[in-house]
């Protein structure tokens, strides 16, 4: 103790000096290590720690990019609207053409169709003896043509005989050679019974078929078999498409 006391007394100024120097060292190291830490942990690319000037230049860059991209976006949008309108008009044209095509196909008879109408089954009873000396004569092509004409007159929109569609160029023809007669529609042989399908107003067609002056009744009276069926709502008449080819070799559009 005795030896220590004077030492402390002697170094009174030294104590003040060491404390102040210690404080100085402390503050220096504190600031230095804080700075080390900041520099080490700072990500220069992240926005939170950027300096104001850097942020300003960055902002200017982004603004430039933004305006550029906005311009491009507007360009592209304009192009898109252009294409859209073009596409719409194209679609309209295509729709129009399609409906026209459908109409034409229906008129031409190149599609399968269905609808209300009647089915006539006409049985050729030739060579049967009706009564003494009266023999039933054969159904001719004229008879069939007249039946078809009467049905068309009654408003039929489509007719087929034994699933042969009657179109504008259809021929019905009875070929007679060597006492054998063959009924032909568009060069296709058909035989009795003739199943005639017609699509149109059911009532009109039925009344036409059952008309007393009509060809069908005359044929029935002449001894042939006749049956008329009308379509029902859940069982419409189905008529197949025309199976032949429609080509025009000679006719052309008229030159104006």
């Amino acid at each position: 103790m005795k030896t220590k006391m004077p030492k402390i007394k002697m170094s009174k100024t030294k104590i003040v000096m060491s404390i102040t120097i210690g404080i100085a060292c402390f503050s220096l190291m504190l600031v230095m290590f804080m700075q080390f830490k900041v520099v080490k942990q700072t990500d220069i690319t992240s926005i939170e720690t950027m300096r104001e000037e850097d942020l300003r230049t960055e902002l200017a860059d982004w603004k430039e990019k933004y305006t550029e991209l906005t311009e491009r976006y507007n360009d592209v949008m304009a192009k898109i609207t252009e294409y859209q309108s073009e596409k719409e008009s194209d679609e309209k044209t295509a729709e129009l053409l399609q409906s026209e095509l459908n109409q034409l196909n229906l008129a031409l008879g190149t599609t399968d169709i269905q609808g209300e109408g009647i089915t006539i089954i006409l049985e050729d009873k030739k060579d049967t003896e009706l009564s003494e000396g009266i023999i039933v004569s054969q159904i001719t092509d004229y008879d069939l043509l007249i039946v078809v004409r009467e049905l068309f007159a009654a408003g039929a929109e489509a007719i087929s005989i034994n699933d042969n569609r009657i179109v504008a160029m259809t021929d019905i023809f009875l070929r007679e050679s060597n006492e054998i007669s063959i009924m032909q529609i568009d060069s296709q042989r058909i035989t009795s019974p003739y199943v005639i399908k017609a699509i149109g107003n059911r009532a009109y067609l039925e009344s036409a078929a059952n008309s007393k002056d009509g060809k069908l009744k005359q044929l029935q009276n002449a001894g042939h078999g006749l049956e008329v069926q009308t379509s029902s709502a859940n069982k419409p008449i189905i008529i197949n498409a025309y199976t032949g080819t429609i080509d025009s070799k000679y006719m052309q559009d008229k030159e104006n």
Partner: peptide, 16 residues
Amino acid sequence: AIILGCVIGAIIGVNA
């Protein structure tokens, strides 16, 4: 004093 000041300053600086 110098060593003590340096060490304490460094520790606090790291944890600041």
